[in-house]
Structures are given as structure tokens and as C-alpha cells.
Design a protein around this nucleic acid. Sequence first.
DNA 1: ATTCCTGATTATAATTTTTATTAGGTTAAA
DNA 2: TTTAACCTAATAAAAATTATAATCAGGAAT
Lengths: 138, 138
Amino acid sequence: MDNKIKRLKEKGVVLTIQRMAVLEVLNNSSNHPTVEKIHKKLLRKYPTLSLATVYNTLQVLRQAGEIQELNIGREKRFDPSIDPHHHFYCRGCERIIDLEISCPIAQKGSIDGHKIESVQAIFFGTCADCLKKGKDNA
Amino acid sequence: MDNKIKRLKEKGVVLTIQRMAVLEVLNNSSNHPTVEKIHKKLLRKYPTLSLATVYNTLQVLRQAGEIQELNIGREKRFDPSIDPHHHFYCRGCERIIDLEISCPIAQKGSIDGHKIESVQAIFFGTCADCLKKGKDNA
DNA sequence: ATTCCTGATTATAATTTTTATTAGGTTAAA
DNA sequence: TTTAACCTAATAAAAATTATAATCAGGAAT
């Protein structure tokens, strides 16, 4: 968290109360929240904080490379971790689980002459918990 | 194409004119079109075909496992190929390029006890063409 | 301290994307 | 041919995101 703030300052990002608050909520969450979820949580502490600010802030943070934006399902989701890792989406409980793996192809830096900057892999399936509960409707 | 139709019939999917038309457009496209693009193209031949039908059909085809739905950017995009392959999204020209690779982890069928059914990997970066043109604003 | 400037925030409107509804039409089976 | 099931079109509604304009906050210069 402190490192992120330091890097943001170095990049010339103005660190307002609102931006710090968004960053904090994201850092303390492990469930890849949607914009709506982040906003709802913040409203408890900052009742006037607008949804637009959350959108703006998330964009600023992403452009600064301090958070990740995930395209899973209809809504965008956000991940405070920028370490190379991937995600498992369970069709049963709809959870998004972090996977501590990194893509061997991405590490090469390029493929077919295209320069790779990042990768986002989503594994779809049924998680261990749902398998146990027999929610595997295959 | 013929195989797809055969499999759809076997699965009990009613093959209407509209559904065939959507499937055909998708099969003849290599640029991973959005719902809007598919609809626009179809309107030329079928002026009354509604957007809702395109949405419905794409959902039917996806649930039947005959097409792939891609979450890249804001709009959903569709891919007629269900063979294991992945995608490269160029930040320069915004093209989506097919990558003829398959994920070694997905082939194992499971990870951390979670059952894998499919994977969707998106590599972000700058494509070979844009690199040449110096569009690599890194 | 006051004014000015820049950029952030708020509130709201507008747009875009997706899903739901409903009435009418088609299709396929009995 | 009649019935039941399902599909389509048109429309409305909902959900998600972006744009706009007014306001506000913090520094820099006066």
C-alpha cells in the first residue's frame, strides 16, 4: 500500500482523500469487487462520494499501473494485485479465485512478432467447494 | 459449418432462418465482431431482424458450445472457433488477433482442486504492424 | 489575505450495452 | 389440422459507463 502511494506520487498523480479511499478499499478486498461494490462500501464512510469519482479514480489507478481491471462477465472487476497471476471463475458460486500461476508465453515478452505487455487469463469451471457440494451440473 | 449445424440439430436446437444467418455471419468473420456489428451486417439481408434476436441467438449458440464469447473491452465479442486458442489485443489498432496456442495448465483439466472447463487468455500489447509503424507508445 | 489557475469532485444527463416483456407468428409433433 | 412449444420482433426497461457542467479545493502569484 505504502509502495503504491509512493509510486503514484512519483508519477505525479494527485492523491486526494477520495483516491486514497478507493485504493484502500481495493487493497483490503480479496473478492475482486465491481465499481458498484466499491462505491457502496465507500458511501458508508464518505456519503457524498460520487460514482463518477470511483470510475475516474479506478481509471487513474489503472493507467498508473497500480491496479488491474478484469473483464469477467458483464461488469468490470478490479484487482489490487499487479503481480502476474490469473483467475478462476466458478460457474457454480460465481466466485473469482486467484491462481498463483504465471503464463510461460507471456514471460517471453513477445509472440508472433507482437509485443506482450500483459496477460489476463480466466479459467472457467467449477471450484473445489462446489464440486464437493455436487453443484457440478455437467 | 455443416458440422456445427449437425451438432446443433442433435442438441435439439431449432434452426431458424435467423439463427442460421447469425451463425453464417460469425463463421465468415475473422475479426471477432460485437453484437452490434453482427446485427448491422445482417440488416442488409434481413431488414427486420431484431437486435434481441441476435442476442438470443448468440446466447443459444454459446450455450450449445458452438461459439465462444470473449470479454475484451466494454462490449462482448464473438468467435466462431471453439478450438483451444487465445487472443492478442493490440492497444494500437485495437485489433484482436488469434493466437494458435493452447494453455498447458488447462490441458491438465484441474488446478488447485478446481475443475477447468475452458480458458480464455488475452495478451495485451502492441502488434507487429503497429510496432513497425512506431505506434508503440511505451 | 486575496485572486487566479489548475485539476478533482459532484450531480446529473446522456449514451451504450444488455436483458426482460409481450403479442403475434412459426414450427413440429400428435 | 389442431395443439403446444418455441421463436421473433418490437419495445420497454434495466444495468453499466461516459460525458457535461457547475462547484470546490489547494497552490502559486500578487
